[in-house]
Design a binder for these strands. Structure first.
Length: 188
DNA sequence: GCTCCGATGTACT
DNA sequence: GTACATCGGAGCA
């Protein structure tokens, strides 16, 4: 079952935690690439100084202020794309969940080819890595992930234990533990 | 296993 | 100009 819009219309941190273990599907023509989400991070609105939406609405971050369940893809460090899902309650002005890692399920051979590496544990375990493996770029920005289109998220596994850690790669609001992940032994 | 560092484009000051 | 929600390779252990 594809997750419905209501799933994303809740507090960003709640959605980030509950996305762990869900199945991410990327469809390219007739091929299907899937993986179990193993790591996420919550980014809120003006109350979160590390978020793109901490300041006013700009061209890049405008999607974070829009409807929940849409994709937000942006380009960073001159060479990497990041995949986010808009998730926010009615009370929040903005919010998104960064998909930081997945564990490959279907189309593993294609993802290995896209990445040019063959270690299955090293092809989609980072936000820049998984977008390369799944061929995600700005073309996939602002898509409706609650519909069966080229990217969607559906029910997956029920994680045994979810880790809660500070977010990675940021310099502001480092005290907030809004990074969620599962260990490899708990994937199945 | 670790730490260090360059690559590279865009938004924003 | 500078910072950036990153990665892989080099060097060392």
């Amino acid at each position: 079952m594809i997750l419905e819009k209501e799933f994303y219309e809740r507090e960003t941190i709640t959605v980030a935690r509950q996305l762990i273990g869900k199945k991410l599907t990327r469809k390219i023509k007739n091929t299907k690439l899937t993986g179990i989400i193993t790591e996420t991070e919550a980014y809120r609105g003006k109350d979160d100084s590390a978020s793109h939406a901490a300041t006013n609405l700009t061209k890049r971050n405008s999607i974070m202020f829009g409807p929940a369940g849409m994709s937000y893809v942006y380009f960073t460090y001159g060479m990497y794309f990041m995949l986010n899902v808009i998730a926010k309650s009615k009370k929040q002005n903005a919010g998104a969940v960064l998909i930081r890692g997945i564990y490959p399920q279907d189309g593993i051979e294609i993802m290995i080819k896209n990445r040019g590496m063959k270690d299955i544990n090293n092809i989609t375990n980072g936000p820049g890595k998984l977008t390369i493996a799944m061929n995600i770029s700005m073309k996939e920005n602002n898509l409706d992930l609650t519909k069966k289109s080229s990217i969607y998220i559906s029910e997956g596994i029920t994680p045994k234990k979810i880790n809660k850690l500070p977010r990675i790669g940021i310099s502001k609001a480092v005290d907030k533990k809004w990074n969620f992940s599962i260990n490899s032994k708990d994937y199945f």
